[in-house]
Computed example of a mutant assay.
Amino acid sequence: MWESLGFRESPFNTNPLVARQEDVDLLVGRSSESVDLCTQLGTASEGVLVISGRPGVGKTSFFNIQQFLLENDQALFGPKILAARTLCPVQPSDDIRKISIRALDSLYRSVNEWCSINKVDLPQQTKEIGKWIAGTGTSGFSLGINILGFGGSVGRTTQLPKISDATFEAISDAISAISAEVIELLHFKSVVIALDNIENLSDELLGSMLISFRDTLFSTPNVWWVLIGQSGLSSLIQSLDPRVFERTTGSGIEVRPIELTELYDAIKLRVAKFHKKKTGKAPLTEETFKNLFEASFGEVRFVFKYSNNICTKFVEAMRSDVLKELSRSSSLGTKLDKKTFEKKPGCCDWSVSYKFANI
């Protein structure tokens, strides 16, 4: 569909921006939140950081771009961290142990992806732990790992049971082993593990997770745990487990809705990136974007989702007209070829497209 409208792909993709260079310029605003994030991550080499905001406001996009900038020394200030390219999604059906193993796996995948991108060999112990997680290689036996010391301190050796028998302490040891290699061999200051969509957990299960992780996973050296969820997450954590809240850095980062002018800027950037022509224009009017923005109270994902729907409905309507024209021309013995059919939606007057939103 978008090809016929002059775009390589939809400028209204609702997927979050990811930690890569080509997405950096698509993030608009967020200067205040960026300062907060970079400053708080610079206060220590490990900790727990809370990022919250309303659904669809752009929390994940903001976090992904900021950690990419820190990883690649493109941020104005802040530590050099290994970005969590693979976030750890929290599902409503999860139990605490499943979340802990998924967190370990997300760290392994982030290290593996960084090494692949930068054409660097995956550190040996990290590679073995990856096999252990996947249930291959040494997974049926105990796995000996050496957890390196930081700053010249003496390390230690420990054994990991098979993954099905791993305790929170064993999973914490595996995370420590991976982070130690990242710090010592890949020369980062910290690694990041991000638990996304925390709101999927009930208050009771979240409280149990906080208690279980408090003195094990959340205490792992050189690991920043980033908890991403809806507005009020910091206050909820404080009420469920004050001891965990005391370990969180600052009062959390609240990602607020962007301004309307910033939304216009974001759309212009996307149109410039995905349109086939340098002079390409947005397929909808600013008035349409304004109406959607105000109806959603500044929810960017809502604006993009319904902008995409409007365009789809409009093209569907135009193509229905073309099919009717095909039918009429066929009955009259006139041939209407496929080129006409494909070109028709791209020739539409988009200034009237808003009326098709409810078709």
Rank of each mutant, 00 (worst) to 15 (best):
I310H: 10
N308P: 02
T261G: 12
A266R: 04
L284N: 01
K268V: 00
E262A: 13
V315M: 06
I310Q: 14
R270M: 03
T261V: 11
K268A: 08
V315K: 06
T279P: 05
L284Y: 10
E299L: 06
K305G: 01
T279V: 05
K273A: 15
V271A: 10
K281A: 13
A282N: 14
N309E: 13
F302E: 13
I310V: 12
G298E: 07
F293T: 09
A295P: 11
K277R: 10
A282M: 08
K290L: 10
H275Y: 00
V315I: 13
A266H: 05
E294I: 06
T285W: 15
N291T: 10
L284H: 05
H275P: 14
K276G: 11
E262C: 07
N291M: 11
Y306S: 00
Y264I: 07
I310Y: 04
C311W: 02
K281Y: 04
K305R: 15
C311D: 01
F304S: 02
K281I: 09
V300R: 12
E287R: 14
G280I: 05
C311L: 02
T288F: 15
E286H: 03
E294Y: 12
R301A: 03
T285G: 02
V315L: 03
F314D: 03
F302N: 14
S307N: 08
G298H: 09
S307D: 06
K273C: 14
L263S: 14
N309W: 07
V300P: 07
N309M: 09
E299C: 15
N291C: 04
D265K: 07
V271L: 03
E316V: 02
F302M: 10
L269C: 01
A272Q: 09
G280P: 13
A266Q: 08
G280T: 07
L284I: 13
K290V: 02
F274T: 11
L269N: 11
R270D: 06
R270P: 08
T288E: 11
A272Y: 00
T285H: 13
K305P: 03
A266F: 01
L292A: 11
